[in-house]
């Protein structure tokens, strides 16, 4: 599977397999009898699996692209530059970028505290970080409304504002950076940091020149995941943001309303646009990461 999707905790640990496999002596596990050629039976199995995968996912996704291309380029441009749609896409992308920036800082900080600090109740914080993964998205919206809605005890009401979109994105993307940085930070060799310090590096220099370059790939992977998740989010903000046209409506809501109004071409155009933006941002983040790694 691709390395960019290191979404769940302890991927490095998991790659060594669960306890029974890992407790065996760690001899070299080369597979001398590498991947086999397909036999008749396995070929049939592959055929069945591919038919199911195509029927379930591939053909439908191709259908979105085909539906987008039906009206040609002018229709696509018209659909995504329609003022209400353009406003929704702009809002989605800007809020997703802002949330990703917050996650890069806060996620790294949370991972740092969880790995390097010891205090009672740390295990509880670990559970808190997994909650956004686990909660059904509609329940996530409900949960945020309870504190930040009209009857919240803090007196802060973000319902039906742009802040609601930001907050919903922030909630659902919380685990991504934390969970991708945490295992890397735990494996990081502290000798190198001590060496840097003994050679006269200040704390900030050590962080910038030693730790940050080592963490950069993990931070990048987490940032890409949280951006992709944010721009595709729907459930968490449906109750929270009010879906006000031109103000708090996001891309996925726009797709749904086009579909419900019997305009599947426009819906497909917005969907393709979201996929495109997602790919672009992930590619950009990866480029940036390579530059940071080189400078370090």
């Amino acid at each position: 599977m691709t390395s960019t999707l290191a979404e769940r905790p302890g991927r490095a640990a998991r790659e060594r397999g669960p306890a029974p496999a890992a407790s065996r002596p760690r001899r070299a596990r080369r597979t001398p009898n590498g991947p086999y050629r397909l036999t008749a039976a396995s070929g049939l199995g592959l055929g069945v699996a591919l038919v199911w995968f195509s029927a379930l996912a591939l053909i439908p996704l191709v259908a979105v692209l085909v539906e987008t291309s039906v009206g040609g380029w002018p229709a696509f441009v018209a659909a995504v530059t329609q003022p209400q749609t353009a406003a929704a896409l702009t809002l989605t992308v800007t809020q997703a970028l802002a949330v990703t920036a917050v996650n890069v800082v806060m996620g790294t900080l949370i991972a740092w505290v969880l790995v390097r600090d010891r205090f009672p109740g740390k295990r509880l914080l670990e559970v808190l970080i997994d909650i956004p993964f686990a909660l059904p998205t509609i329940v996530a919206g409900l949960v945020l409304l309870a504190l930040y809605g009209p009857s919240g005890p803090l007196g802060i009401d973000v319902a039906n504002t742009r802040a609601a979109v930001f907050l919903a994105f922030l909630f659902v993307t919380l685990p991504f950076v934390v969970r991708s940085v945490q295992p890397v930070l735990a494996e990081l060799d502290r000798d190198v940091e001590e060496a840097a310090a003994s050679l006269g590096a200040t704390r900030s220099t050590t962080f910038r020149r030693v730790i940050l370059p080592a963490l950069a790939p993990a931070i990048t992977a987490g940032a890409a995941l949280s951006f992709a998740r944010a721009i595709s989010e729907y459930g968490a903000l449906v109750l929270l943001s009010g879906n006000l046209p031109m103000r708090t409506e996001v891309g996925s809501v726009r797709i749904l309303s086009y579909l419900e109004n019997g305009q599947p071409e426009q819906a497909a155009a917005v969907a393709s646009m979201l996929l495109l933006v997602s790919l672009l941002v992930i590619a950009t983040i990866q480029l940036l990461q390579r530059r940071v790694a080189r400078r370090g």
């Binding site: 599977m1 729907y234 996925s252 969907a271």
Partner: peptide
């Protein structure tokens, strides 16, 4: 491709199934 469904918006998943 097998990882793709994770990065597709649920709404787009729904849309794609309706189209087919």
């Amino acid at each position: 491709l097998l990882d793709l469904p994770l990065s597709v918006s649920p709404i787009v998943v729904g849309l794609s199934l309706v189209l087919v």
